[in-house]
Design a protein around this nucleic acid. Structure first.
Lengths: 112, 112
DNA sequence: GACTCCGCTATGAAAATCGTAGCGATATTG
DNA sequence: CAATATCGCTACGATTTTCATAGCGGAGTC
């Protein structure tokens, strides 16, 4: 079941929105799918390629969850696309990109 | 293996920093652990309680990955704590909280 | 020594993810 | 119409990850 406000959330007894969101984003490929939709709609197969040939089983599961959460939509002519709400989420995810660059420079292996 | 710049990244042929980061954050409990360290250090057991009694197997795996990635540190007196780099990541994750609140208001179930 | 809390591990069961193949529907082209 | 191609999506067995419970050895305290 896709986590969503007002529904039971896996791994959280409070069910607060942030917990539902962290649950959703903590599933494999969820963040990646949102990321790969940043420049516009993609068909499911194009999305699969963009995600390094992720298994279609998982991709469909993620897309279904994201659609139920009203973050991603599907139109026959366009394919999968971020909803306005999904674009807001993307905006909240974009800071990760800049961080990743700093991280690459500063997280080189050192003794644990 | 914990994803890190310059190392092979699960599910990405490019190995770009953002891919390594999305891989790391897409593992269950990773985002939650970072979130629960936002107010300061915690012992592993306190962290386990804060994460709704997550299995210690996974918690230790996540903490090891986060330490190897230089995002979390461990000191005997304090427990686990975000490193300066980890605090930067937290800053990039905080926007998710505000989004989650809007999401809770606007993502109520509607027809598919 | 007895007690407590620490970080951490063992182990078998359950769940999630993977990899490959292919379905039915739709549109296009000859 | 038949052949072809692409679409979203599913089946299914193998692999990997996560879970749940129990407990270890070390360090501090009394």
């Amino acid at each position: 079941m896709a986590p969503m406000s007002g529904r039971p959330v896996r791994g959280s007894k409070t069910g607060r929105p942030i917990m539902a969101l962290l649950d959703l984003l903590g599933r494999r490929w969820t963040l990646r799918v949102i990321w790969e939709l940043r420049d516009g709609p993609r068909t499911s197969r194009a999305l699969r390629e963009a995600c390094d040939d992720v298994s279609p089983t998982v991709l469909q599961a993620r897309l279904t969850e994201l659609r139920q959460a009203n973050l991603v939509g599907l139109e026959r002519a366009r394919g999968y696309d971020l909803t306005p709400l999904g674009r807001e989420l993307l905006g909240a995810v974009l800071p990760l990109y800049d961080f990743a660059e700093r991280w690459a420079a500063g997280a080189l292996p050192r003794k644990g």
